[in-house]
Simulated scan of single mutants.
Amino acid sequence: MNPQPVYVFARWQVKDGHLDTVLQLLAILSEKSNAEEGNLFYKLHQSNTDKNTLMLYECYKDEAAVSAHRNSEHFQTMVLGQIVPLLESREALLTSYLF
């Protein structure tokens, strides 16, 4: 049985006044994440009604690739160390494709 891809939907609410910084960091993070061996894609979306609401849409080849991403130096340093302090809230949902 082949491992199933894992899709991540993450919603980030950026604190007022910090959107430009978060977007600059996400541009770098996206490039590094897309270069990961187990990453299939890493996309960023912005709400049409609230510019501070960002949705990350990611796909990894399997659970191990998600773990590798979350343990990567760029995730630890950029997401946890630099971006999270600039967020009001952050939630992520890991999913598998049904049909």
Results as ranks from 00 to 15, higher is better:
M1L: 14
N2H: 07
N2Q: 14
P3L: 11
P3K: 14
F9M: 11
W12A: 10
Q13R: 11
V14I: 02
G17T: 02
L19H: 07
L19I: 10
L25E: 10
A27W: 06
I28F: 09
I28Q: 13
I28S: 08
L29I: 03
L29A: 04
S30L: 14
E31Q: 14
E31Y: 08
K32H: 02
N34E: 08
E36K: 06
E37N: 14
L40A: 05
Y42P: 05
K43D: 14
L44Q: 11
L44E: 09
N48L: 15
N48E: 15
D50K: 11
T53W: 04
T53D: 15
T53P: 02
T53C: 04
M55P: 03
M55G: 00
L56V: 10
Y60G: 03
Y60H: 15
Y60W: 00
Y60D: 10
D62I: 12
D62Y: 07
A64Q: 15
S67F: 06
S67A: 07
A68I: 06
R70H: 12
N71P: 02
N71V: 08
S72P: 01
H74Y: 03
H74S: 00
Q76C: 13
Q76P: 03
V79T: 02
Q82E: 08
Q82Y: 06
E88I: 09
S89F: 04
E91K: 06
A92E: 06
L94I: 03
T95M: 15
Y97P: 05
Y97G: 05
